[in-house]
Design a protein around this nucleic acid. Structure first.
Lengths: 219, 219
DNA sequence: GCTTTTAGATCTAGCT
DNA sequence: TCAGCTAGATCTAAAA
């Protein structure tokens, strides 16, 4: 997929210096990810193609682990109220991939901020020094209320500006542009949230853009 | 219902002085609320009684409005990235009732904090000076991953301690204790999230407590 | 009526 | 296997 990035609190300085290797590997994974789609079950748009978080997460997770990221890293005991684990970690870099509902953005970054301010040791005897946050762009058709890149940017802007967030954060937005292209189309059985694949395959898709900027995807 | 409260950033000073009237009215509403239950549709616990956020929200909302709270108060334009509206507002007091999934806690309080720090004018030419946050206790059977009082307290504790939150916040937790008592049992039709009442009525319920502290409610 | 968006409801997945 | 919990998926409701 294509990507856009926005840096907060000088995250860009880190990815072009000390964290350059980590970033270039990550970039490679993201850019090599196909577009994964699934049929929506939402009333009035039944069957329409929407972004498939399950297949996308599976693809990314597999590669991140191959690249040495630790998945589901346990949150230190003293901060257990913030949850069980962080999606991925490598040394002091926290990586979250978020396609769920929008409040998870502030939830995820706030707990990262607490780890940062408290200089808590995370992985490999390092303190948290960078957060990378992956989401999808608003132009992609998706389930209602799922977080999107532009929303994340705007919220983080305000939070940084008003001093709530000081940890370096790099936000990555996955997107596509109008084209006749190919995408993975996955049909799950078992209803909402099912991860049981009924069938999956590459399909030709026609991506067009509405006046609003939203993409229309015909499989 | 019964309530527990926890104060952060001296919210308790406000509710016993300048905001005493507002608080005593609110308390009256909360304590007069019946327990609302509905059958769960979750696999393995189909039909079991769980906390009914729809009926509870409806009951509370009606009374709050009667007491002069403004519902769905529009978020000032410059902070529109944080959403459309705040549940209820009265002068400088922001009121959120949250029975949805847990990340909404940090989402809601963070946007309130930004309003507080920026001294933004909210209702009646006042700046935000207090947030009251209502949720339910962990002992009540509920949908998975819905926010609960103890979780809220623990997360806010860390956020206040590490300087992310400075706005006075009063957290209210609704709960019940073991008893043979009465509750509203509402059956909706139309599946998940439906607000169309098929039937509703007072029922006798037997509330017992498990070793874990969780309540078991038999209708 | 259709689109867009947030808020809320609330399920399944998967681990302890 | 049942209980308890967080993470993630993703719908309906409702208003603009």
């Amino acid at each position: 997929m294509l990507i856009n990035i926005t840096s907060f609190n000088n995250a860009n300085n880190l990815i072009s210096s000390t964290h350059q290797q980590l970033w270039s590997e990550l970039l490679q994974v993201l850019q090599s990810s196909p577009l994964f789609l699934k049929p929506s079950a939402q009333a009035n748009i039944q069957g329409n193609a929407i972004f498939d978080p399950i297949a996308t997460n599976y693809f990314l997770s597999t590669r991140f682990i191959q690249n040495g990221w630790r998945a589901a890293y346990p949150i230190p005991r003293q901060f257990s109220s913030f949850g069980k684990d962080i999606d991925f970690i490598k040394n002091g870099t926290l990586l979250e991939v978020q396609f769920s509902n929008y409040p998870f953005l502030v939830n995820n970054v706030s707990r990262a901020e607490v780890l940062f301010r408290s200089q808590t040791i995370v992985n490999n005897n390092q303190t948290a020094d960078l957060m990378i946050f992956i989401t999808k762009a608003g132009c992609l058709p998706s389930s209602n209320s799922t977080l999107y890149y532009e929303q994340a940017i705007d919220q983080l802007d305000s939070l940084v500006q008003h001093g709530l967030l000081t940890i370096p954060i790099l936000v990555v937005g996955l997107y596509e542009t109008p084209a006749q292209t190919q995408a993975y189309w996955t049909v799950y059985n078992g209803g909402v949230s099912s991860r049981t694949i009924l069938n999956q395959g590459m399909q030709s898709v026609q991506i067009t853009q509405r006046p609003s900027g939203k993409l229309n995807i015909i499989v």
